[in-house]
Nucleic acid binder design. Sequence first.
DNA 1: CAAAAGACTTGGCTCAAATGAT
DNA 2: ATCATTTGAGCCAAGTCTTTTG
Length: 899
Amino acid sequence: MAVEAPPAKNVYDFDGEDEGPLVFKRSNTSSSKQNQLNSELKKASSQRSEGQSGRQASDVRSPNGQSSNVQKNKTISSSKSPPVKSPIMSPKASSSSSKASLVKSPVANSKASTSSSDQSEQALKRNMATAVKDERSPTKDTAEPKIEEDDDDNKPLSSRLKGTSNQGNKGASTSASAQSQQLVPKTESKDSDEDPDDEVPLATRFNRKSNPGTSSSKPYESDEKKPLAPKTQQNGFVIKDKQQKSSLLSGKRPLDKGNPSDQSSAKKPKISTTPTTFKSKQGTVKAEKADEDDDHIPIAQRMRKSLSDNKPSFKPTKVVSSSFKKINKKSKKDMKSSKYIKSTKVPPSSGDGQKKWSTLVHNGVIFPPSYKPHGVKMLYDGQQVDLTPEQEEVATMYAIMKDTDYMNKEQFKKNFWEDWSNLLGKTHIIKDLKKCNFDPIYEWHLQEKEKKKQMSSEEKKALKEEKLKQEEKYMWAIVDGVKEKVGNFRVEPPGLFRGRGEHPKMGKLKRRIRPSDITINIGKDAPIPECPIPGERWKEIKHDNTVTWLAFWNDPINPKEFKYVFLAASSSLKGQSDKEKYEKARMLKGYIKNIRAAYTKDFTTKDVMKRQIAVATYLIDKLALRAGNEKDDDEADTVGCCTLKVGNVECIPPNKLKFDFLGKDSIQYVNTVEVELPVYKAIGQFQTGKSKSDDLFDKLDTSKLNAHLKELMPGLTAKVFRTYNASITLDEMLNKETKEGDVAEKIAVYQRANKEVAIICNHQRSVSKSHGAQISRLADKIKELKDVLKELKLDLDRAKKGKAPLKDADGKQKRNLTPEALERKIAQTNAKIEKSERDMQTKEDLKTVALGTSKINYLDPRISVAWCKRHEVPIEKIFNKSLLAKFAWAMDVDPGFRF
DNA sequence: CAAAAGACTTGGCTCAAATGAT
DNA sequence: ATCATTTGAGCCAAGTCTTTTG
């Protein structure tokens, strides 16, 4: 069956040129109006007005957030100077074959993974029959998509737009950013426009020498010492052969008989795993990679292996698992891809039940220690009060929040009081929170903290080991015979709910979770984890292999929601889906042109819903907005694209839109962008006749939007655009801006690209408390240096005339230096000044930008890895240990990989 | 079909450890 | 050696999106 072409619906011809990112950036132009708008918004939403959470109020973006915005933008492009030490070139980086580095551990055979992934990729491609092309081949789409529509559509969006769009934004200082942010896709010009920036001879600024060469040291070995996995680990799990075996045998299909999935689960039996399907897949897989012995070792593990001087720990695993060669990877791919296709047309029945694993063994979860009363008495109306341990526990939770911003929130106090007074009982002496004085408890808390800090390092270490010992058994799971790290095996301790923004439930007591709250999911043949609290038992045991969670409980704050325990990001299960995510985004690359053409066309359609879909898609594409699901009243009032309110968008003639709203985590999004006239007009139309608090897209919600997107490309949803735009931006910036030079320069290029992406995605962080101090310290330093410089110049002048230098500040005579020596000193000082200025600028630039989020979630690691290989940058300069583990699946990418 | 359930990804923050500067 | 900064892991809240239900 295969995969046929993309959905008939609208596919036009591709010609694959347009896949570049349009330019869009946060604007700085927006200033003046913002405040005003803000205040209006505030009025509209009563709650919010109080001072948006600390974050807003205290930092950046609000009142004068403008300025910061300005800075963030393009205008300043210097990027921070990376820490440079003697770069050790990773062999990987230098040699195109990643394998080399892995050689040492025979088991870890990178080839295996390579081929497997390649295969899967191919399979994917085959199946999808999409426009996704081979990595290295020019992006052209084999576009299956046909159906021509208007002639217009065939033109590259960019060309059409070019006419319409931008122009006027050249002005002023903001020009750079302004233009860049403008939505108008003007690919060509974009490039040239941006170039200036690129030019910034970043390179020239760094003098660091790099030793490009081939480093010999294998990067990964550096970690050897650190026991990534406690030695003991393996014992903990010595795979019970019996289990293993049984699974082996039965593994295949024993599922059928007691079928796990239906056991207790609420889930529909996903037909899943019809033996046939499953088997055949497996067969395929095996066949294809028959030669690879190590296959059973998840890439993640292999990685880990190389990272740490692997202890024999994997042996057991290996042995056992070898017989099942993972079903995952490729086979999964197949399933997936076919699913894409299916999803649009084929009914579920055909289905491959999404089997996520065959055997699953783990030890459940660990609970926080029970509460130990401290006996410190709080005051009520000046008098000490006795509290029961339960009451004291909650009082303590509140007490320790003393220096947080929550204490300024009435909602927080109100909710806390409700829950706590309830615990106190109606007859309790304490009747009014205002008369409570928690300071004694707070003081006690501070002392405890101090004590801990003062502990000798030995004590700390001992404590740590103790903890590790206790937790060790919970840290690992065995999935299909492979030992994998568990993500969050610690049950959340009780506390006061810390909702973000103006969350209506902040301050409520988040009660303690007990075993009877927890549902365990585990392989059918695996031993049921022992309940760690004597006398209690799990709520339920499931054997659902269509899901990846190991356990869950209902969120005490919102009982309709769940808290899951999953495998860690480094697990191959997560790795696979991560890879799939990026593959989907790459697939979008082949469709984007036509998608853009399609929505552009619909800007003016009479059908309102269609028009709203078109405009919304446009915003999601160009501004990387989130989809914007509906929210309940008992959640913070934030919006995404589909839930934008009329008041969140202001039309600024002739064709600019100013966005100002609170997005996820109540992070403010402020951006003024130039849009194409039809969009501008459409927004105006959507706004007319509505009040500020009405939905801008009243005919739209995320399910309609996503349903529509799926018609354009299999599996396409709104969030894919974020991934796509982030990754393509990185890819293009890296390729455009990387110049010959030392490693430090290249890293700087990377960081600039990373920053760009972070800005596009509006990933913010709060300004650190010490930021101001740090800046002024730097400023002082610069000033000092400049004074030195002045003096040196003076001395130089005198030296040239043969005069001795003037006395220094202390009145002492300075050494008599030759003009040459002075010149040198001057040059050095100048360099220092420049560096400091750059540092300061960078610091200021990044003070509100969070780079990590995009690296973890949006940037296809293969872009980074391939770039590192091409440019001989050690990958560990870009990814830290946990990212290396998380992205193990991407490490053997071909150096020629392009997103 | 809309709402509810369910599962999984994304996100900023905190705190402690690592690293850098002095 | 000491102090300041930076970094990273863990935490857990808050999104997205799919599937089920009524």
